[in-house]
Design a protein around this nucleic acid. Structure first.
Lengths: 170, 170
DNA sequence: CAGATTAGTTAGCATAGCTAACTAAATTAC
DNA sequence: GTAATTTAGTTAGCTATGCTAACTAATCTG
């Protein structure tokens, strides 16, 4: 059945996170060395997002467009270049992503004083879709959290603060 | 500049996780309601994986191929259909992914008693690449964890166990 | 043994990454 | 003040990765 020839390198996938290597968790015995904690944390993050992500498909928008839109909705208007930086993609990629979003009337482009730059803003429709998606994801997770006793919920809450510190150092 | 026409629906992105909606964290005041904890946790997971993911690019393998390979390396041989299920991808998609992996000599395909099924196994080369990648990711995270005082490291470690329970319920 | 089911492939399309090469606007140099 | 450079974004063309529909081949069922 003659495998297809693949020559190029993979190219980065920018925002499409969560990717590979989620499968080793079961092999690593629970322990508290930094490497073991790191491994469990990594695995937990991957599995968490993989489960939550299915809800994003309900929005009917592709992942790259959804992510770019979320920047505009939750962090405010941006130029194309700023958005590309935020999403860790190249300008041509972002150019196409915003063309799709504009086509779907989820964002608007406006001229700025600097004639080279464009100002991208989420429309009311785009904002609505984004908040609905966030609500779906977070409700799904909150439902799972609710099964935890209050005391442990609190311990988890405190640990998230630690986690946020760690992430800033990665 | 005439936006391009986009007609089709987005199609799922299977394993390419982490996607959208990472950007609302700053808007949500720290709090301990289930929704708020869920929101912070979701955001933390996205940001964590986004930072770790850059290290995967060093492997020179695309994200979908890397993820499929990781199943074969860390969970053992699988048929194409089983691998597609594990990766939440349709069979034609997996068919192409494994063609690429086979081409790169990272996996091997073997016949089974059932003439319709194929048995996919990671090669030594594929296994090596996978473990190196895991090492890179976990080392990056372990370095960040090391900056935490021992007592807090322990609290985080305990919270990860809670987190793993929560994830099973999502 | 004929029809139905199951596993995988092929074909064709869409989204989403990239680099290279282009246009146009703003800034800098002289 | 104009020419060269720099900066912002677009266009073109490639690859990878999703999908569905339609196909082949093998197995199972009646």
């Amino acid at each position: 059945m003659a495998p297809v020839k693949h020559k190029s390198r993979p190219a980065s996938e920018a925002f499409t996170a969560g990717t590979a290597a989620a499968h080793q968790a079961a092999l690593v015995a629970a322990g508290s060395s930094p490497m073991e904690v790191a491994d469990q944390l990594h695995s937990a993050a991957i599995h968490l997002l993989r489960r939550l992500r299915v809800r994003d498909r309900e929005s009917g928008i592709g992942p790259a467009q959804l992510s770019a839109l979320s920047v505009l909705v939750f962090s405010g208007p941006r130029s194309l270049g700023e958005l590309a930086d935020a999403e860790q993609v190249r300008p041509p990629t972002m150019s196409r992503i915003i063309a799709g979003l504009q086509c779907a009337r989820l964002i608007r482009r406006q001229a700025t004083e600097d004639g080279r730059r464009i100002r991208l803003t989420a429309t009311a429709k785009g904002t609505k879709i984004m908040w609905e998606g966030r609500k779906r994801r977070v409700e799904t997770l909150a439902r799972a959290l609710a099964s935890l006793p209050d005391a442990e919920k609190e311990r988890l809450r405190e640990a998230i603060i630690l986690l946020q510190q760690v992430i800033r150092n990665v």
